[in-house]
Structures are given as structure tokens and as C-alpha cells.
């Protein structure tokens, strides 16, 4: 009897050890930083570039994820494209935006700087680049239920592992010509969940994906607000100059001409009354 108890104790220790090995307590961190991309190997802050930023609406906008730092896990290209499509949708419907193009990750290289940004902008024929950066941290913990993993079956049915995913997504829009940051909008999310020992990897991956989804959903309304604010700012801020592209013309009336037309109606009516 004593031998069975000892064997059981040893087995539980063994499985506990397995659970500890399988469970990544360090968590997962993945990020892509705008600063790392645009200012590689820079030990000093980027110098201020006072001057006039000239915009030629309707502008052509490119959207891209900043390249991921080496050694960190990243979203798949498919996931990136889906998220960028949602960001792209938020840029549509503005008269001062002509076209929006998604720039695939392959066209931006890690720590490429503004030189690489200009290359991609020329390639895709865009005036502005919206760079989407992100920072995601996943914390992993085990709950008391993980004790039941010793039963082997428990590793399949008991959700003893927990994850907590914090995501921050940031969309920064740059004028490619002047290198000027025009505006930015952040989005954040926190996703919590639990999983069995066996299914933890997949569940955590889904959690990280959901973290991105929710962060982008949080980003979009802020991006709309920033777009509207920026539109008003360029009209009043002396650092911005708007030069319409010569290509689009319109015969346009204002309320003043509407009053003139009403004046003409009044004049002709009086004529008839005489």
C-alpha cells in the first residue's frame, strides 16, 4: 500500500513538472515600434524640423504595419492584411483622401528608416503613410485547478492555465515628403482567458488575435476623431499649407450665389406683376 502511495506521489510530481515545462510562465511579448523603424541606431532624439508641411489634397495614403523586431513573434500576413483592411475602411469617405493602399510587410524592412519609407511610398505612389505599430504582452499564470493535471485526463479537461493579453495598437500618419508626423491615434485592449494544459497554446494564440481585434476596434473611432481634428488643424495652423491638385475643378456656388439667384427670382416676379 505504501508503495502505491509513493508511486502516486512521484507521478503527481512528474506531471506537475511536465505542466511547468509546458506552461510558459514568462509569457509572450511581440512589438513593432515606429521609432525603431524610422530612427534606427539613433542614440539621440530626432531633431526638430521646423518648416512648412505642404499637402496636396486629395492625398493618396498607404497603410502598413511597421516591420517586427527580429526575434519577436508576429501576426501572420493574413491577419495583418485583415486588420489593415479595417483601418483602411476608416480612411474612406473623406473627400480629401483620394486612394488608400495597403502596403505589404515585405516592402518595408526592419530599421529601414525614412529612406525605406520613401522607397515604399514611391513604389505605391502614395503621399502619406499610416504606420501601424503595436505592443502586445501576454502574461501566463496557473490557477489552483492546475493541480488536477496530475490525473492526466485533467490536462485535457481542466482549464487550469490562464492568460492575460495586453495590446496597444498605434496608427501614426506621416507626410512622406517632409517626414512630419501629422497625427496619431492609439487603441488598447485587454483580453483574459483560461485554457486546458493541452489546448493552452491555441487558446492563447486566439486570445492574442482577439487582443489585436479589440485594440483595432478601439483605435478606429479615435482615428476618425483625429482625422476630423487634423482637417480643421491644417486650416488654422501656420505650419501647414494646402495646395489643391490642379486636376480637379468644379463649378461651385456658395450661399452668396444662391441669394443672387433668389434676387433674380424677385426681380422677374415683379416684372410679371406690372
Amino acid at each position: 500500500m505504501r508503495i502505491f502511495i509513493l508511486l502516486g506521489f512521484a507521478l503527481s510530481l512528474l506531471l506537475g513538472g511536465c505542466a511547468t515545462v509546458l506552461d510558459d510562465h514568462t509569457g509572450v511579448k511581440q512589438n513593432g515600434s515606429v521609432v525603431d523603424y524610422l530612427y534606427p541606431n539613433s542614440k539621440e532624439s530626432p531633431s526638430l524640423r521646423p518648416g512648412l508641411t505642404t499637402l496636396h489634397p486629395p492625398v493618396r495614403v498607404g497603410i502598413a504595419f511597421v516591420p517586427v523586431n527580429a526575434g519577436t513573434a508576429a501576426l501572420s500576413e493574413n491577419d495583418r492584411t485583415q486588420l489593415l483592411e479595417r483601418v483602411k475602411a476608416s480612411f474612406t469617405g473623406y473627400a480629401y483622401i483620394d486612394s488608400i493602399q495597403i502596403v505589404p510587410s515585405q516592402y518595408l524592412r526592419e530599421k529601414g528608416g525614412f529612406e525605406n519609407l520613401e522607397q515604399a511610398a514611391r513604389l505605391f505612389n502614395v503621399d502619406l503613410m499610416a504606420l501601424v505599430s503595436y505592443d502586445q504582452v501576454q502574461f501566463n499564470d496557473t490557477s489552483r485547478l492546475s493541480l488536477l493535471y496530475w490525473s492526466i485526463v485533467g490536462a485535457y479537461v481542466i482549464k487550469g492555465n490562464r492568460y492575460d493579453v495586453h495590446t496597444m495598437v498605434d496608427c501614426a500618419v506621416f507626410d512622406v515628403h517632409s517626414h512630419q508626423l501629422l497625427f496619431r491615434a492609439p487603441g488598447t485592449s485587454q483580453v483574459k482567458g483560461s485554457a486546458t494544459l493541452v489546448g493552452f497554446g491555441e487558446e492563447a494564440r486566439n486570445g492574442r488575435r482577439a487582443g489585436f481585434d479589440q485594440a483595432v476596434a478601439d483605435l478606429l473611432p479615435r482615428l476618425h476623431t483625429e482625422l476630423d481634428t487634423f482637417r480643421e488643424r491644417v486650416r488654422t495652423d501656420a505650419h501647414y499649407q494646402i495646395e489643391p491638385q490642379a486636376g480637379r475643378g468644379g463649378g461651385a456656388f456658395d450661399l452668396w450665389e444662391l441669394l443672387l439667384a433668389l434676387g433674380l427670382v424677385a426681380v422677374t416676379k415683379r416684372t410679371r406683376a406690372r
Binding site: Y96, D98, I242, R248, G249, A252, D254
Partner: peptide, 11 residues
């Protein structure tokens, strides 16, 4: 004129 969007000039 306020009726024209940005980027369009009055012809």
C-alpha cells in the same frame, strides 16, 4: 466656396 471639398479648385 464651402461647398467644394478640399483639393478641388473653383473653375
Amino acid at each position: 466656396p464651402s461647398s467644394l471639398p478640399d483639393g478641388v479648385f473653383v473653375a
